[in-house]
Each structure stands twice: as structure tokens, then as C-alpha cells.
Design a protein around this nucleic acid. Structure first.
Lengths: 129, 129
DNA sequence: CCATGGCGCTTTGCGAGCGAAAGTAGGCGG
DNA sequence: CCGCCTACTTTCGCTCGCAAAGCGCCATGG
């Protein structure tokens, strides 16, 4: 590396931003679940994340198929009740994702405050768009 | 609020996660740009974010149409050269997004270390999926 | 006893979005 | 003059996310 001028190649590629996890709704679901080792009910999750039934159902299926959450269907009294929990590997994946999120944030804050001016070569005229 | 049991309704909804910004590639692009007030060239951006030409072009168009970046086409010598820069409102939007990212991260780290066990009511048998 | 309505979830439909691949336009080297 | 290279843009297939409709079950009430 650093065979070129800067060695910054791919500096902002963020390959670790797992597409399955990097999603508004899913991020909320997982963060909710991460806090409770014994899981959450479908209905609670729905309220916590302000999701519609259909939406939540869809996302849970995706997460289940990815082996990130496990879903247990049971009954409360005689009404169906679905319990969702992070799997162990799901938790690891989530933590990994959070790790790169941290580095994104670090870059961002860095950028925000520094806003350093790199000397730029503006050769001839740049016509406005 | 707190008209129900917990007052946590929508606690994890993260409505501020702007869909236009919340995207792997775009996030990288914006973070790159945020650091340099005088902008970056198409080719630099491409290298920094490990994007293909087509991809970068696509994303830039989206960002431009959303008024987040401005694109100036000019020439270096007599080769075309495209300069991209964050607009002022784009910067604000980006900072807003980063703000909610911080809160997501705070929640996540909280969850990760605490992993508190809420007492759960598991009424009758939960059959394994 | 049927029907009307609510709860808990699943399935379907569709429009938007993403990224790979192909296309365009001009410079430059042989 | 010809073909390769750089610097993008456009097209295309497929996935994805979201909203709306559907399904099964229980409860209530006429």
C-alpha cells in the first residue's frame, strides 16, 4: 500500500458496513434486542421501533434467515405470541458492525471540526454547473 | 408520553436517519467531502471510496438532486475533471445525520455492556421454531 | 349460533434503489 | 491513422423496503 501519493485508497470505503445490518429499521430492531438477552415480543418491538406489522415481520424474516435473530412462536394464554432474540453469532455481527460505525463517526467528527483546507490545484477555469 | 407502561414508544425508531444519507457508499462520499471544504475530484473520490465509475456517478447524481453536493465540471489541461463539494445545507444535513448516528451508537454501546435482563413473562411453553 | 370486530402476524405488489456492465467522448502514443 | 487510456454516463437486472391486503383466531353481542 501507499504505492500512490496518499495511501488513502479505500480509506472511506467502509466495507465492514454489513448491508443486512446497515438499515434504519433493522438497526433499531437489533439495538432494541441487544439490550435484552431474553428477547422481546413482536408487539413490543413494533412499538419500540414504530414499525407496521408487515414491515417488522419482513425484517425479522430477513434477520432470521441471516441467522442473526431467532424467533420462537408460542402462546400467551391462547393468543399467539412471538419472541425474538439475538443469536450469539448475531450479537457478534452486530458488535462488529457497531465497531465500524464508531470509526465512521470518528472520521465524521474529525472532518466536521477540522474542515482542513487541502491545497487544491484548480488549473484553469471551472465553469459553474 | 409514558401513557403506556414504559414510555419507550419509538425509542428505537431513529426517524432522523435520512435515507438519502444512510447508505454505505454515500456515507463514505460525504465523510470524504466533509473534511475538505474545497471539494474533491471524481477520481479521488472514486479511489477513496473504492467505487466504480458508474456507481460513483450514480450516487453523485442522487446527492446533487437532493441539493447535498454541488458538481462543477471543468478541465485539467484539456482532460475533463469533475469537482464535488458539499453544499452548506448538505453539510447541515450531514451533521444532523451524524448526530443521530451518535445516539444510535450510544444506545448500542449501552446495550452491549449492560445486557440487562428484564424479567420476562414466559407464560406457557414456547415451542422452538 | 352466526356475525362483527379486534388482535397478531404473513403475504403480496410495486416503486425505488443499488451496483455491474456497457456506452460515449475525447486525448495521447506508436 | 488506429487503438488504448482516461473520465465519466447510461442502461439493465435484480433486490429491497414499505404499504396494503389477507388470514386465522378469539371475544362479544344480538
Amino acid at each position: 500500500m501507499s504505492d500512490k501519493k496518499s495511501g488513502d485508497e479505500g480509506r472511506y470505503a467502509y466495507e465492514g458496513l454489513d448491508r443486512v445490518l446497515h438499515e434504519k429499521a433493522r438497526l433499531g430492531i437489533l439495538t432494541s434486542l441487544a439490550a435484552r438477552a431474553d428477547g422481546l415480543l413482536f408487539t413490543d418491538l413494533k412499538a419500540l421501533c414504530n414499525l407496521t406489522d408487515g414491515n417488522l415481520s419482513r425484517h425479522l424474516t430477513v434477520l432470521q434467515e441471516a441467522g442473526i435473530v431467532e424467533i420462537k412462536k408460542g402462546f400467551r394464554g391462547r393468543r399467539p405470541q412471538t419472541l425474538c432474540r439475538l443469536t450469539e453469532s448475531g450479537r457478534r455481527r452486530y458488535l462488529g458492525y457497531i465497531g465500524v460505525l464508531e470509526s465512521v463517526l470518528a472520521d465524521a467528527l474529525d472532518a466536521a471540526k477540522a474542515t482542513r483546507r487541502t491545497k487544491r490545484v484548480l488549473p484553469e477555469g471551472f465553469s459553474p454547473a
